Amino acid sequence: MSRIGKLPIKVPSNIQVEVNQQIIQISGPHGKLFRKISDLIKVELDSNNNIYVKKNDNTRIANQLYGLTRTLINNMVIGVSKKFERKLQLQGVGYRAEVKDKDLILNLGYSHPVLIKIPTGINIIVEKNISIIITGFDKELVGQLAATIRNKRPPEPYKGKGILYKGEIIKRKVGKSGK
């Protein structure tokens, strides 16, 4: 038994949960999310507004999906009640960010600005041209967008320039030693 999978998911009173065969739909004040559940897993909703995840089989794949499914459903409940947030920091001379319409424009030392389309359901705030705050109710989408932005200029180990997650520590290397 998975220690994570057997825990019930407590659903707040302002969240609506619908389970139709293998599709779970969760809606709340910040949005609506749905997910298709594997046939090896069963999701039940009790009268006390708790969600229970159970295995249909006792196979290795069902054991792997058991805890994963519970965590994904829990993230959906948290996302529609509170939002998820990722913070990025630009470090480097001349590195700037700004939001225009539904685009994030990054100046990262290239000969051209880097344009990133902001998906629906995601909100981006830029503070002081060097701090990017990504918020949204879908944890996967927020994390993927943050990783995509960071991948445009990952931090390098010599001077530490690039796009970092807030609070991330880059292990620095010593450069060439001059004679």
Rank of each mutant, 00 (worst) to 15 (best):
residue 126 V to N: 07
residue 57 D to N: 06
residue 94 G to F: 11
residue 108 L to M: 07
residue 133 I to S: 15
residue 143 G to D: 15
residue 38 S to E: 13
residue 133 I to W: 04
residue 133 I to V: 15
residue 33 L to M: 08
residue 115 L to F: 09
residue 105 I to K: 06
residue 88 L to V: 07
residue 82 K to R: 10
residue 53 V to P: 06
residue 154 P to E: 08
residue 127 E to V: 05
residue 99 V to T: 01
residue 150 R to Y: 03
residue 31 G to I: 03
residue 84 F to Y: 13
residue 73 I to V: 12
residue 156 E to D: 00
residue 69 T to R: 10
residue 127 E to P: 10
residue 125 I to H: 15
residue 110 Y to L: 14
residue 50 N to A: 01
residue 91 Q to T: 12
residue 78 I to C: 00
residue 126 V to A: 12
residue 82 K to W: 07
residue 141 L to E: 15
residue 134 I to E: 05
residue 153 R to F: 05
residue 32 K to G: 03
residue 112 H to D: 12
residue 101 D to V: 01
residue 155 P to S: 12
residue 83 K to V: 11
residue 115 L to D: 14
residue 149 I to K: 09
residue 27 S to C: 04
residue 26 I to M: 05
residue 35 R to Q: 12
residue 54 K to H: 14
residue 64 Q to T: 02
residue 148 T to I: 09
residue 156 E to T: 02
residue 41 I to N: 09
residue 51 I to D: 01
residue 53 V to C: 03
residue 97 A to Q: 04
residue 78 I to A: 07
residue 27 S to W: 10
residue 91 Q to C: 09
residue 114 V to C: 11
residue 74 N to L: 02
residue 32 K to R: 15
residue 118 I to C: 00
residue 56 N to T: 01
residue 155 P to E: 03
residue 47 S to M: 05
residue 132 I to H: 12
residue 104 L to G: 02
residue 30 H to Q: 07
residue 87 K to H: 12
residue 142 V to T: 01
residue 48 N to E: 14
residue 93 V to Y: 15
residue 137 F to R: 11
residue 45 L to H: 08
residue 105 I to S: 07
residue 112 H to S: 13
residue 49 N to M: 10
residue 28 G to R: 07
residue 70 R to I: 03
residue 139 K to F: 10
residue 130 I to P: 03
residue 140 E to R: 04
residue 77 V to A: 10
residue 147 A to Y: 11
residue 79 G to S: 05
residue 70 R to L: 09
residue 46 D to Y: 04
residue 47 S to R: 14
residue 105 I to N: 14
residue 110 Y to F: 14
residue 135 T to H: 08
residue 88 L to H: 06
residue 140 E to K: 14
residue 76 M to L: 03
residue 46 D to C: 08
residue 38 S to R: 09
residue 144 Q to E: 10
residue 59 T to W: 06
residue 54 K to R: 13
residue 74 N to S: 00
residue 68 L to A: 13
residue 48 N to F: 10
residue 109 G to M: 06
residue 145 L to G: 02
residue 56 N to H: 11
residue 136 G to S: 02
residue 139 K to W: 00
residue 107 N to F: 13
residue 59 T to R: 09
residue 41 I to G: 07
residue 144 Q to V: 05
residue 149 I to S: 07
residue 115 L to E: 15
residue 88 L to F: 06
residue 31 G to T: 08
residue 76 M to F: 09
residue 111 S to M: 15
residue 29 P to V: 04
residue 82 K to Q: 06
residue 36 K to W: 04
residue 117 K to N: 10
residue 83 K to D: 08
residue 45 L to F: 14
residue 88 L to S: 09
residue 92 G to F: 10
residue 136 G to R: 04
residue 75 N to W: 07
residue 44 E to P: 06
residue 52 Y to K: 15
residue 90 L to C: 04
residue 89 Q to E: 10
residue 56 N to D: 00
residue 51 I to T: 04
residue 97 A to M: 07
residue 135 T to Y: 00
residue 75 N to E: 13
residue 111 S to I: 14
residue 29 P to T: 01
residue 153 R to P: 02
residue 41 I to D: 05
residue 65 L to K: 06
residue 80 V to C: 08
residue 73 I to Q: 13
residue 117 K to F: 05
residue 114 V to H: 12
residue 50 N to K: 14
residue 121 G to R: 05
